[in-house]
């Protein structure tokens, strides 16, 4: 089916409006739907997302000069990476960047990772016990929420016990 507006692209958005018992259908392609202000969830390329976020953060500040504190100019002391350079390549320079640029990166991570900002899953075997417990706690909390949502109280009780166990020093 072709888009009703441009009659060029195939329609992927199908709207059904019912007003006073009158039913009306609209078929649009993604581009025309966006033009009509219908919000469409689509994949935003990372560097596009990045430059939007970075420019929003830099807004109102003076342009980046060498060594100043604006996000575009500050360099990581370990690898020398700047946010400006990261904006160009979408690649960070070293592990320390994640902490050094944390406040700027976290909104970006949240957006590109479906709202998540904390790891859940595999942990290297040589990780210190305390860090392992911290990650396990986050996972258990997630499982507990899911169990409560699905009214699986037996699992919920078991998860709560394990969480208590990990929390007692």
């Amino acid at each position: 089916m072709l888009c009703q507006v441009c009659k060029k692209h195939s329609a992927t958005i199908h709207l059904t409006e019912i007003q006073n018992g009158h039913r009306e259908e609209t078929h649009l392609c993604e581009g025309c739907a966006q033009q009509q202000g219908l919000s469409v969830k689509s994949q935003i390329p990372l560097n596009e997302l990045l430059s939007t976020l970075l420019s929003a953060q830099a807004h109102g500040k003076t342009p980046a000069k060498e060594g100043d504190s604006s996000p575009g100019g500050n360099a990581c002391p370990t690898c020398g990476m700047t946010l400006k350079e990261f904006g160009k390549k979408s690649l960070l320079g070293c592990a320390a960047d994640y902490d050094f640029f944390r406040e700027h990166l976290e909104p970006l991570i949240e957006k590109s990772q479906g709202g998540h900002t904390r790891h859940c899953g595999k942990v290297p075997s040589r990780t210190p016990v305390q860090a392992k417990h911290q990650i396990e706690l986050a996972q258990l909390q997630k499982d507990l929420d899911a169990a409560v949502r699905t009214e699986d109280y037996e699992s919920a009780a078991r998860l709560r016990d394990r969480i208590k166990q990990l929390q007692t020093p």
């Binding site: 990372l46 994640y98 970006l108 904390r118 790891h119 595999k122 942990v123 290297p124 075997s125």
Partner: peptide, 27 residues
């Protein structure tokens, strides 16, 4: 697991396995 016995990978307690691009972060 076998490789991890021989080398140490960059790992962050909050972000998990660290990758050059944040889109691969975590697992």
């Amino acid at each position: 697991n076998l490789i991890e016995q021989k080398v140490e990978f960059a790992f962050h307690p909050d972000y998990g396995y660290l990758t050059a691009c944040p889109t691969n972060l975590g697992t």
